[in-house]
Simulated assay, not measured.
Amino acid sequence: MKKRGLLAVLLIAVMTLLCGCGGMSAEDAQSYAKSIMDASYKGEFDKYIEWTKSSEEEAKELYEGNIDATMQEAGFAGLGLSDELTESYRELFLNMIKQAKYEVGEAKDAGDKAYTIDISVEPFTAFEGLQDEVQAAVTAEMTSMTEVPDQNAINEMVFQKMYDLMAEKIASPTYGEATTVTITVKPDSDGVYYIDQTDMTALDDALFPSDNF
């Protein structure tokens, strides 16, 4: 499975620019940053709704809609998988994102009404060695077959085995040593506070390292 900057990147890309105008205190900046992360990764919208003045329905639609966009970006539509397995992967990805482990530190004045915030991140490592495990499982299955199935059937079998392994690992996730990623909460030219996409991508990469997929 190809990692596309991971699923949460698309969620964050839409959510980070929705904070209302006006100045922020350090406490506000910390709360705002945590609300963005909790909404993007955990599907927890209470504080996000407060900051954005959006409804819970709007927040959930955004969250769910971007998961659908991520599924499309990952190429699932062209694999010929069953609707049941595709939906299982959608739920799996939602569960995986919710495994993100982070702590939002205090905001520090960075000048020009901006704040820097250190985020302590524990990288998700549960999928280390996954490709080798999938290959071994698929090889064992193919060896026992008396007829060669068509490509769609092969895809279904391969992705079912990968799903089974991933679901087991998500149920008992493992994490690496904590690292720190610094983000900046700052106003744009209109005074609307946001977190730059490069900061959020760095956070995402730290939470879900690509070499673990």
Rank of each mutant, 00 (worst) to 15 (best):
K3G: 05
G5V: 11
L7C: 13
L7W: 11
V9R: 02
A13F: 14
M15E: 00
T16H: 09
G23Y: 11
M24P: 01
Q30T: 15
A33S: 13
A33I: 06
I36E: 02
D38K: 07
D38Q: 10
S40D: 03
K42R: 10
G43W: 04
G43N: 06
I49R: 03
T52F: 11
S54Q: 08
S55M: 10
L62H: 06
G65V: 13
I67Y: 05
Q72Y: 11
Q72P: 08
A74I: 13
G75L: 04
G75W: 00
G80T: 08
G80W: 01
S82L: 08
D83L: 13
E87Q: 15
E87L: 11
Y89D: 02
K98E: 05
A100I: 02
Y102Q: 04
Y102N: 01
E103I: 14
K108W: 04
D109Y: 05
D112K: 15
K113S: 14
T116V: 13
T116K: 10
S120T: 15
Q131M: 14
Q135G: 09
E141N: 12
E141V: 10
T143L: 11
S144Q: 06
D150G: 13
N155Y: 00
V158Q: 06
F159S: 01
K161G: 02
D164P: 10
M166L: 12
M166S: 03
K169G: 00
S172F: 07
S172V: 14
S172Y: 07
Y175R: 06
G176T: 04
V181Q: 03
V181W: 01
I183A: 00
D188H: 12
G191S: 04
Y193L: 10
I195M: 03
I195V: 13
D204A: 06
D205I: 00
F208W: 11
P209Q: 01
D211P: 00
F213G: 00
